[in-house]
Simulated assay, not measured.
Amino acid sequence: MEKFQPCQIVKGCATDPLPHFESDTPLPSNIFAEMKSYSQSQGGVALIVLVDGKVVGETYRDGADEDTRFFSFSMHKSVMALAYGAAIEDGFIHSIDDPIGDYIEEWANDPRGKIPLRAFLTMSSGLEALEQSEWRALKFNFSQNVSEVALSLEQWKEPFTQFHYKNTDSQLAGVALHRALKANGEKDHASYVLRRIWCPIGAKDALLWLENEEGDPRFYAFLDANLRDWARVGLMIMQDGEFGGRQILPSAWIVALKTPSANNPKYGLQTWIGSPYAAERSYGPSSELSVPQAEPYLASDVNFFDGFGGQRVYVVPSAGLIIARSGEISLTWDDGVLVNLALRGLEERIPSKTE
């Protein structure tokens, strides 16, 4: 991450380390070995598994360790959605059903300003999709004017008519959040995430890639942190917004995060949902990418953060299970393998599942 500039540090407030099982681990060691083997066969560099909030397995390779910050890619989207829950609780945003023009001045009197925030958070804004070969896509991905490109997009469809996973939807949702934070006396997105999420869960320093020194963060990706801290975020979600005996985010917001959206039952608010089963998980009508899954999840309550090429945080509350994984980009990553290996090792915990 240090190669990408400018960066902003989300300063950590590291507290007690994650506890480990000293004996009688609920996940057999041979199961973790199989999980490690699959992850590394797909270019995996780091893997950590928690059960009931305790580490049952952790592994690194290629010089990485517990302090290494990994590329998160789109997992930042899910953290941005968590920050929305804090901003609503703090009164900075009234509702995600507010029109985005209430928060983005450039669109205050523009038809696009009537699109609800919810449409951007659920990838159903109806705005045009950038073709990766066109100059605007290159400008969006690599220039110092990311938000400017996103704000230039035209409306192609009515909101909520089609799921279409787009980084620009996340960027615009993030810009609206950032403007709301600043309007209410907060310094910036990084400082707010630090105060409301990162410090309360005891995480270490993370890095956020900005579009330019004075501009917005890249809300669609690139909040890069160590794997233990991603596991902490997953643990907070599994515990309905609570961490270390303190309610960090409203439990109702965590439920909303994981509630299927109108246009895609496998997508909530910037967060993916494991059920219903799909052998190929699609990112939308113009994306050539999809993620295979050879078999359904063995639990019906899987939800997860998806970072490009196999960066993941899986949360399975019924089994008390958290899996965080990072590695080289893999386009053959199967989303079911790690979760189902773990669930088979924890089979006594899993209630009967009906799809």
Score class of each variant (00 low, 15 high):
residue 111 P to E: 14
residue 183 A to Y: 08
residue 138 L to V: 10
residue 199 C to Y: 08
residue 233 V to N: 06
residue 262 A to H: 09
residue 187 K to G: 10
residue 265 P to V: 09
residue 310 G to C: 09
residue 171 Q to D: 04
residue 158 E to A: 02
residue 271 T to D: 13
residue 254 I to V: 12
residue 92 F to K: 13
residue 295 E to I: 02
residue 209 W to S: 09
residue 14 A to Q: 14
residue 88 I to D: 14
residue 154 E to P: 00
residue 182 K to A: 11
residue 314 Y to I: 03
residue 75 M to A: 04
residue 156 W to P: 07
residue 281 R to M: 14
residue 259 T to G: 04
residue 154 E to K: 11
residue 168 T to F: 05
residue 157 K to E: 15
residue 31 I to L: 04
residue 346 L to R: 01
residue 139 K to P: 10
residue 170 S to W: 08
residue 72 S to E: 12
residue 322 I to C: 07
residue 303 N to F: 15
residue 19 P to T: 00
residue 90 D to A: 14
residue 193 V to F: 08
residue 67 D to V: 05
residue 34 E to W: 01
residue 281 R to Q: 15
residue 325 R to L: 12
residue 68 T to W: 05
residue 69 R to S: 14
residue 288 E to C: 00
residue 98 D to N: 09
residue 84 Y to P: 08
residue 344 R to M: 10
residue 64 A to I: 01
residue 167 N to F: 05
residue 294 A to L: 10
residue 115 I to S: 01
residue 194 L to G: 15
residue 31 I to E: 12
residue 106 E to H: 01
residue 166 K to L: 13
residue 27 L to E: 07
residue 329 I to N: 06
residue 291 V to C: 09
residue 304 F to I: 12
residue 235 L to Y: 13
residue 285 P to K: 00
residue 315 V to T: 12
residue 265 P to F: 12
residue 112 R to M: 03
residue 21 F to V: 05
residue 86 A to R: 04
residue 239 Q to A: 06
residue 152 S to H: 01
residue 135 W to V: 12
residue 125 S to C: 05
residue 294 A to E: 15
residue 242 E to V: 08
residue 257 L to K: 01
residue 8 Q to S: 11
residue 61 R to E: 10
residue 37 S to P: 10
residue 73 F to N: 13
residue 335 D to M: 12
